[in-house]
Design a protein around this nucleic acid. Structure first.
Length: 269
DNA sequence: ATGGCGTATGGAATACGA
């Protein structure tokens, strides 16, 4: 049965520390495929056995010690695993796979885009320069390559592109993740690659939509000063098949939570 | 009060996240 597919993307902020809530997600949502970011774990230490026990036998990981790291785990076979080293930094920020869907397969890219540091100025902040260079390389690498086949790009893209993707557009215009130089480049990457913003197809542009809430808020839910940093993009051939997206906000309140909530996307033939 | 916290490394204090 490959005529339905339930996909979750989640910045887990240490996969080893958070296996209990990953298992809770699996019990509650039963995704077919889970894309994780910030696994913070070398490949040799990735909790493969726990995922296998939970039914996720197919695992594509691109991890490193201490920082970053992405993983795509699946109940369905994964093929053509590809890991690209953007900006030649040696960072583990991307893994792509083919997943069976609807009698064929879809290409699934899992990204962890650099956060970009504090100062939104590439001249004085190398992390911000890296973030912009990373997105520029995404644009040139992806332009046209996934336009004509079913494809999904998910992950922590670390940009909140629209006014209602942040709690205060005005107060965040000079804060990294929502500056015009980032949001304009972000849209350029998306449009040039032929991608559609799936989450905004199911939530009106005038409604607030967040996937991340800072650990530092005294009461994250009450303050609700969130940002939409995690995304689901789909290629045009796949667009007719996306049946819904949602943010599992509850997971932000689970025991020892990640500061990101999972984003769920469902596809059908 | 948009950082007041949290994680990894390493075994205290620092780098990093956004």
């Amino acid at each position: 049965m490959t005529d339905r597919l339930k996909l979750v993307t989640w910045n887990i902020n240490s996969v080893r520390l958070r296996m209990p809530i990953v298992e809770k997600l699996i019990e509650e949502i039963a995704p077919d495929v889970i894309c994780l970011q910030e696994t913070k774990c070398p490949d040799a230490n990735f909790p493969e056995n726990a995922f296998r026990k939970a039914g996720y036998e197919y695992i594509a990981i691109n991890g490193q010690k201490g920082y970053h790291g992405v993983a795509t785990v699946s109940r369905l076979p994964l093929e053509n695993i590809e890991k690209r080293d953007f900006c030649d930094m040696g960072d583990s920020r991307h893994v792509a796979v083919d997943v069976p869907f609807n009698g064929t397969s879809l290409r699934l890219h899992n990204f962890y885009v650099p956060a970009g540091g504090d100062e939104p100025n590439r001249e004085i902040n190398p992390k911000f320069a890296h973030k912009l260079d990373f997105m520029a390389e995404m644009k040139s690498w992806l332009q046209g390559s996934e336009t004509n086949r079913p494809a999904v790009l998910v992950g922590d893209l670390n940009v909140a592109p629209y006014e209602h993707d942040v709690w205060s557009h005005k107060q965040l215009l000079r804060v990294v993740s929502h500056t015009p130089v980032e949001t304009e480049l972000f849209e350029d990457v998306r449009e040039t690659g032929g991608w559609l913003d799936a989450m905004r197809q199911f939530t009106p542009m005038d409604d607030k939509l967040y996937t991340w809430w800072s650990y530092r808020a005294k009461d994250w839910s009450k303050a609700d000063k969130g940002r939409r940093l995690d995304h689901v993009w789909v290629s045009e051939p796949l667009a007719p098949h996306i049946k819904g997206t949602s943010v599992l906000r509850d997971a932000r309140g689970w025991e020892k939570p990640s500061d990101h909530a999972p984003v769920i996307a469902e596809f059908a033939a």
